[in-house]
C-alpha cells in the first residue's frame, strides 16, 4: 500500500462537502430551541461533527495508506454500474425477464473475461437452458 495524499485530501474534501451540505440544509429546516427542538437541530449537530472531522482528516490523515488508486480496470466497474442503471431503467417498462438476461449476458461477456473465464458461452447456455426449460 502506498501513500496517496491527494486521495486522502479528496476523501476529506468530499466528507467536508457532505458536512457543509448538511449544515446548510439543516439551518434551512430550522433549529428550534431545546424546549421545542426543530427538525434541523439533530442533523445540524451531526453535520458539525462531520465537518470538524473532515478538517481533522485533511490535516492529519494525509499519510494514511488505506486508499487504492484507480486503474484501467476501474473502467470495468463503470461499465458494470452503467449496466445496472440500464437494468433498473428497463425494468418498469418491459418487465424483469429480458433485462435480467441482458444483465447476466453483459456481466459474463464483458466483465468476467479477464478473470480467466473463457468458457462463458457454454456457461450462459447452460444457465439459459436451466432457466427456460424449468
Amino acid at each position: 500500500m502506498t501513500e496517496r495524499p491527494l486521495a486522502q485530501l479528496g476523501a476529506a474534501g468530499v466528507a467536508g462537502a457532505i458536512g457543509v451540505f448538511g449544515l446548510v440544509g439543516s439551518l434551512a429546516l430550522g433549529l428550534g430551541r431545546l424546549t421545542a427542538p426543530g427538525p434541523g437541530l439533530w442533523p445540524f449537530t451531526v453535520s458539525v461533527v462531520i465537518t470538524v472531522l473532515a478538517v481533522v482528516l485533511a490535516l492529519t490523515g494525509r499519510h494514511g495508506t488505506d486508499t487504492e488508486g484507480f486503474t484501467r480496470a476501474s473502467v470495468q466497474t463503470a461499465v458494470a454500474v452503467l449496466s445496472l442503471v440500464v437494468f433498473a431503467a428497463l425494468l418498469p417498462l418491459i418487465g424483469f425477464e429480458i433485462p435480467s438476461l441482458l444483465l447476466v449476458f453483459v456481466w459474463m461477456r464483458f466483465l468476467a473475461r479477464s478473470a480467466g473465464c473463457h468458457r462463458w458461452p457454454s456457461a450462459l447456455a447452460r444457465w439459459l437452458r436451466s432457466t427456460c426449460c424449468s
Binding site: L91, G95, F96, S100, R126, W127, R129, S130, T131, S134
Partner: peptide, 19 residues
C-alpha cells in the same frame, strides 16, 4: 444450474413484477 433456477424461479414466484 439448479441453484440458479431455483433462485430465479422463487423470485418470479414471489411476483415482484407482474402483469
Amino acid at each position: 444450474a439448479a441453484a440458479v433456477t431455483a433462485a430465479v424461479g422463487l423470485l418470479t414466484g414471489c411476483g415482484g413484477v407482474k402483469t
